[in-house]
Design a protein around this nucleic acid. Structure first.
Lengths: 158, 158
DNA sequence: GAGAAATTGTCGTGTACGGTAACAATCACC
DNA sequence: GGTGATTGTTACCGTACACGACAATTTCTC
């Protein structure tokens, strides 16, 4: 295993390169919906359970409370989420999706599918299954919760 | 192919997640050498041909001239590269590695190898070959030059 | 129950970074 | 030999993140 392999033959480099590339492309595809991939991740998370506090959401996504404030400001201004009074804790907000969000989310998911399809062009279905399975096994070992992106910052791509 | 798959079952998401994760880990491994992955990429490129101008290097790596100024400032201050007078063009600089860089580079490469080994733990050699081959085929189609990271910014991770 | 400590959401403040424009020095063209 | 283009650099600006601080409210403790 020679140490001076070129970068293009290193699995970790290729992962970083491809991951950055596909994230940037996805960011572009999402742009005219008025949201970033970080908003998409939050919407996806909300679609699996509403009414949680900002703090709970921030912990689930592995980001700081303050960042959640900004994300929810964006979503609220965009008419995709709303802060309601929390029934049990008057300090906290309970976060809910709007109908507009439930309309937009399938569209955003379709764009994610389109990006994936674009990326995987050239691989047959058996190879796609192989790749997905291998990546899932690697992802298990990273320690990141499933479906939580470690780079949930404001501008993941571009 | 259902549209509302969870993120953990999407190849593009997994690539982005794993790519970000391994880049962040690599950044940490490189930290006590005093360089960032972007510096590493530039050093790797320089090791395959010295004496080029900053402009040529910037184009090869797909970044703006100004960013190259900053990267070379860092490398020069760190004693890893030097700007010499260009023999044919007195506006330009010819960029060379120092002996310190030639000593440091194998160390940095070994850290990249260690990060890769860490990432791929749990995959046997056949699976590693499969994964590498599939990723290389995907990388071909992205349009990025081989071994050039599209996210060559100052702080790729963390 | 009353005060102390912790929690929730928010707001400044400072700092660092990327991108645009501008600049002096030099080259290339014709 | 003079005009336009190119190289490397600096200045500027807008943005975004990290840290700390803050009021309102809850929970703990006695």
């Amino acid at each position: 295993m020679p140490e001076n392999r070129p970068l293009g033959e290193r699995t970790n480099f290729l992962l970083s390169q491809l991951g950055f590339h596909t994230a940037a492309r996805f960011t572009e595809r999402l742009a005219d919906l008025g949201i970033h991939p970080s908003h998409f991740g939050l919407l996806m998370h909300l679609s699996q359970g509403e009414g949680r506090t900002q703090q709970q959401l921030a912990e689930a996504l592995g980001i700081h409370r303050k960042v959640m404030v900004g994300l929810l400001d964006d979503l609220e201004q965009r008419g995709l989420a709303e802060r309601r009074r929390h029934p049990a804790d008057r300090r906290a907000h309970a976060i809910f999706l709007t109908d507009a969000a439930r309309t937009l989310l399938p569209d955003a998911q379709a764009r994610a599918d389109a990006e994936e399809e674009d990326l995987l062009t050239g691989l047959d279905s058996a190879e796609r299954r192989q790749l997905l399975g291998l990546l899932q096994r690697l992802a298990e070992r990273t320690g990141n919760p499933r479906g939580v992106h470690p780079g949930l910052r404001r501008h993941p791509g571009r």
